[in-house]
Design a binder for these strands. Structure first.
Lengths: 127, 127
DNA sequence: ATTGTAATTCGCCAAGTGGCAAATGTCAAA
DNA sequence: TTTGACATTTGCCACTTGGCGAATTACAAT
């Protein structure tokens, strides 16, 4: 097993639950996660998977990404998200190119840079 | 087992990996996740835990939250993250695509959409 | 104290994850 | 064709997760 993160998310969850005056069973009912499992998570005997985290976030009053961050799965702030004004990198992506590409489905956009990668590797092997 | 999300992230990961010309072993080396496991993930035989997702995000050119969203662990609340856009022409440029393209000279960027235009006209004449 | 009831913890185990090593596939060079 | 060097897939299995039901605990109200 490689995974070795063993952050004590349990303490955070317990504190949050208690401060909301919720019982394990209530959280269980709202989240669909068994109370016994929740209990073990709280006292650090189990380390919840992403699915479980996702389900218990709202019942505990967390946003999903908030809880994921607390759990150590996400860095405090992800740079790309929340960025909005000079959307596309700004500095070097030609705005016209951005506009044209943005009209294509994402699959197509990705295919396009896939083609670019192919061409570059061909060019490289030639030179 | 309650969790029943079984979106095949594998297809996305594979497409991304191939478009970047990376082998499973290279991703394995960069991420610390075994190549065999990565292979099984790609072909939908395994469903990676959050830890694994976190480790392979960067090597694949994704932001962490981006991959988590694609995996269905986070709701796509950020407008930048690609998800079901209502019909085509979502006017959304995939952040990864933007990042890659921004590294190219503007001439190259424009050449790329020129090629795209050619391909589209070919496709149109075929159908 | 005793009983009743709800909350928590424990024992058990089916199902799933992920690493390692061996097997297999791929493909270019000799 | 054969060899060699990689890349991918498979077999195996240690280990973890998470649910269920049975204890056990907590705590009111008799």
């Amino acid at each position: 097993m490689v995974s070795n993160y063993r952050g004590h998310l349990g303490g955070i969850i317990k504190q949050q639950r208690v401060s909301l005056y919720l019982t394990l069973q209530e959280i269980a009912a709202k989240s669909g996660v068994s109370a016994s499992h929740l209990g073990r998570i709280e006292r650090g005997e189990r380390f919840p998977s992403a699915h479980i985290l996702q389900r218990i976030a709202k019942p505990l009053g967390f946003e999903e990404d908030e809880l994921f961050t607390l759990a150590g799965y996400l860095s405090p702030q992800s740079p790309m998200v929340a960025e909005k004004s000079p959307a596309y990198g700004g500095d070097r992506l030609d705005p016209y190119v951005a506009r044209v590409l943005a009209q294509e489905p994402v699959d197509t956009q990705r295919a396009v840079i896939g083609i670019l990668a192919i061409l570059k590797s061909i060019a490289k092997s030639i030179s």
